[in-house]
Simulated scan of single mutants.
Amino acid sequence: MLKQLRPALVMIVALTLITGLAYPYAITSIAQAVFPRQAGGSLIERNGQVVGSALIGQAFTGDRYFHGRLSATVAPDPADPSKSVAAPYNAANSGASNLAPTNKALIDRVQADVQMLRTAASAGAAVPMDLVTTSASGLDPDITPEAALFQVPRVAKARSLGEGQVRRLVEQNVQGRLLGVLGEPRINVLALNLALDDLGKR
């Protein structure tokens, strides 16, 4: 029995050290050496202060900023930890709402959001889908160029800027497909809003 037990214990200890310590340490060290910014969370700084990450969305409110994709992430209710409360872009609890397309609560919420956006938008403008739906992670930092362009009239009016000026800013912040073929064109909402703030200072 000891003959079988000893190799098993040695293998458990060896594999724990290799896969649990050595391998993660090696990969983390390589990542920090080769891609230091990405390994550190792709943090964005402004005036020496971290204002967010290029990988995690933020809840922008008010008419002066472009709004990102909706987030369905939750957090424990401080008053009752057995319950959950909405906590948009909660990176500690990434996930979707898991509501089916036929769910009445989801349908009612999307219809109300579409109606609200149509009321605030230019006449006849189609509401981009990513402005009324949540992503699978709940942390999506990007929106489509169409979603950003849809918001141009509201942002331009709130900031007393020309629509053409804001539209050009949106177009300058479009990131193309990876290697020209992978993914879809997108705009990082935080980067766009920081560029918008810079535009107001000129």
Results as ranks from 00 to 15, higher is better:
196 L>P: 03
45 E>Q: 11
124 G>E: 06
66 F>L: 07
144 T>V: 05
130 D>W: 09
156 A>F: 08
34 V>H: 03
70 L>D: 04
129 M>F: 11
46 R>M: 04
38 Q>V: 00
178 L>F: 08
38 Q>M: 02
178 L>A: 14
88 P>Q: 12
54 A>N: 01
161 L>G: 02
164 G>S: 12
102 T>V: 04
22 A>R: 05
173 N>G: 06
163 E>S: 05
184 E>P: 06
94 S>Y: 04
34 V>Q: 13
130 D>A: 13
123 A>Y: 07
95 G>T: 09
77 D>Y: 11
94 S>I: 05
113 D>S: 11
202 R>Y: 05
194 L>E: 09
33 A>C: 06
148 A>D: 05
48 G>W: 04
145 P>H: 11
104 K>M: 02
86 A>K: 15
184 E>R: 14
85 V>F: 08
54 A>I: 00
108 D>I: 11
83 K>Q: 15
86 A>Q: 15
52 G>F: 00
127 V>I: 05
132 V>R: 06
106 L>G: 02
131 L>H: 06
70 L>F: 11
174 V>G: 07
135 S>I: 09
32 Q>F: 00
83 K>Y: 01
13 V>A: 15
192 L>Y: 08
27 I>S: 10
132 V>E: 09
172 Q>E: 15
128 P>A: 07
45 E>L: 03
199 L>W: 13
64 R>S: 08
43 L>A: 05
36 P>G: 01
110 V>I: 14
14 A>T: 15
141 P>Q: 01
202 R>Q: 14
15 L>C: 14
151 Q>H: 05
182 L>Q: 03
117 L>C: 02
170 V>L: 06
98 N>Y: 01
92 A>Q: 15
108 D>W: 04
32 Q>A: 03
141 P>R: 01
157 K>V: 10
55 L>D: 03
12 I>Q: 09
175 Q>D: 12
71 S>K: 03
196 L>S: 04
169 L>D: 04
194 L>M: 12
170 V>T: 14
171 E>P: 13
30 I>D: 00
86 A>C: 05
7 P>D: 08
135 S>Y: 02
128 P>L: 04
17 L>V: 15
61 T>G: 12
95 G>V: 07
83 K>W: 02
149 L>T: 08
29 S>V: 04
101 P>S: 07
60 F>Y: 06
68 G>A: 13
31 A>N: 15
81 P>E: 12
111 Q>T: 14
158 A>N: 13
35 F>G: 06
80 D>I: 04
142 D>C: 08
85 V>W: 07
181 V>K: 11
74 V>M: 13
98 N>E: 02
40 G>L: 00
145 P>W: 06
24 P>Y: 11
125 A>V: 06
69 R>C: 10
67 H>E: 11
82 S>E: 15
25 Y>R: 00
47 N>V: 12
139 L>N: 01
113 D>V: 00
125 A>D: 11
112 A>W: 05
53 S>Q: 03
45 E>M: 10
95 G>E: 03
72 A>M: 08
17 L>C: 14
147 A>I: 10
182 L>M: 15
27 I>R: 00
120 A>T: 10
167 R>H: 05
38 Q>N: 03
116 M>Y: 08
